[in-house]
Design a protein around this nucleic acid. Sequence first.
DNA 1: CAAAAACTTGACTACTTGGTCAAAATGCAG
DNA 2: CTGCATTTTGACCAAGTAGTCAAGTTTTTG
Lengths: 217, 217
Amino acid sequence: MAKAARRKTEQLPEKTTRIQEINRRLILDAALEIFSTYGFRGTTIDQIADKAGMSKPNLLYYFPRKQNIYVTLLEETLAEWLSPLAEIDADGDPIEQLRKYITAKIKMSESHPEASRLFANEVLHGAPAIGEFLTKHLKPLVEEKAAIIRTWVGAGKLAPIDPFHLIFMIWATTQHYADFDVQVRAIMGSQVGRPGFREQTAQAVLTIILNGIRPRS
Amino acid sequence: MAKAARRKTEQLPEKTTRIQEINRRLILDAALEIFSTYGFRGTTIDQIADKAGMSKPNLLYYFPRKQNIYVTLLEETLAEWLSPLAEIDADGDPIEQLRKYITAKIKMSESHPEASRLFANEVLHGAPAIGEFLTKHLKPLVEEKAAIIRTWVGAGKLAPIDPFHLIFMIWATTQHYADFDVQVRAIMGSQVGRPGFREQTAQAVLTIILNGIRPRS
DNA sequence: CAAAAACTTGACTACTTGGTCAAAATGCAG
DNA sequence: CTGCATTTTGACCAAGTAGTCAAGTTTTTG
């Protein structure tokens, strides 16, 4: 995973054709499901090819290496995953901004749990494929938002809390429901599937965190 | 992982000898480090044998299947991992009890991050090896403690929060520092290694959660 | 200290799996 | 509708890996 091998000399045609677009999508969709369930090593190209409804060599025509699929998937996911954080607005009301952020993250955890798991798995294993992304893109973004939170704290609009830890706490709690889904289900049983569950979760998380950071008068 | 194969007929001697004790420990210690880093599929028996300083067939003399090592490790870990939860005392002061629990969990996350990661990886992949444990042992324990928290809420000693979600939030936040260590490091940099970091983390987590669940007068 | 039990390992097998290749099938521009 | 480019695949290969085995070495025990 660390060293990128580039053996193949053949290249896909310059212009992306209609068929390419369709098949790449088929492959990536199939791969997301499998990678997020079994991890990088636990996934075989055959599995992905099967799910995508094509032969293995055909799949390798579009993505010459297994790694390529995996990295493409992570890249595709990450941008979307981070966008709600980018939207935190220094000029908005602190509690309102954070409520919006937390709500958005819980929604994403429910609608794209595979993406969350793919990412969790990658980081859990030491982020061999996206380590660079973390320091080059995630870190500055978080620092920017941490600075905003710090001014809010300074202005007495939030209780005196460390912004990094607050952000980690939001990530941890919201993604928990996607990443540890099996555990949540094992404990809460049928409740998890029920209609209002997401709202109930959001309610609980928001209550605790927002009360936890509201300034004590 | 789903189907347990039992091919080997030979058995280890009934009585555990001194050498057995030493070597099983060596193997399990080596395996924890490797499994927690690379996952089940990503780990090879050779790697473990290497790290344990013995030949592969020798390792297989003690654990006839790779699975056996993995499952033993999970079992060993789980009991210890859950013990702080079991200690929550219905007759104690709610805030104090939860403070103690959270503190214990953060301490464990720092001292045994590999155990946390091993478990996280297993659950993330659908808990194929310990699914049964979750419903048979974890669920009742959590239900018991949830009932306690519920009486505390009923008595007005805590804000009206759902006990399950509170417990999940504690798990999520505390384990985050072990499971997502790479990410935490990428963002916070050198601070993570520094002496007081655990205390700072505990402080931040405790502040938010405990304020978040304290009853509003 | 000798025999039995426990432990250790080099060499091997069977199987999985990422990736190759050459040839066939299909799509498409003129 | 023809010829070139693109797409598809069966058959294959090499590497890696879980697990076996039989023969050796060490430890324990009577």
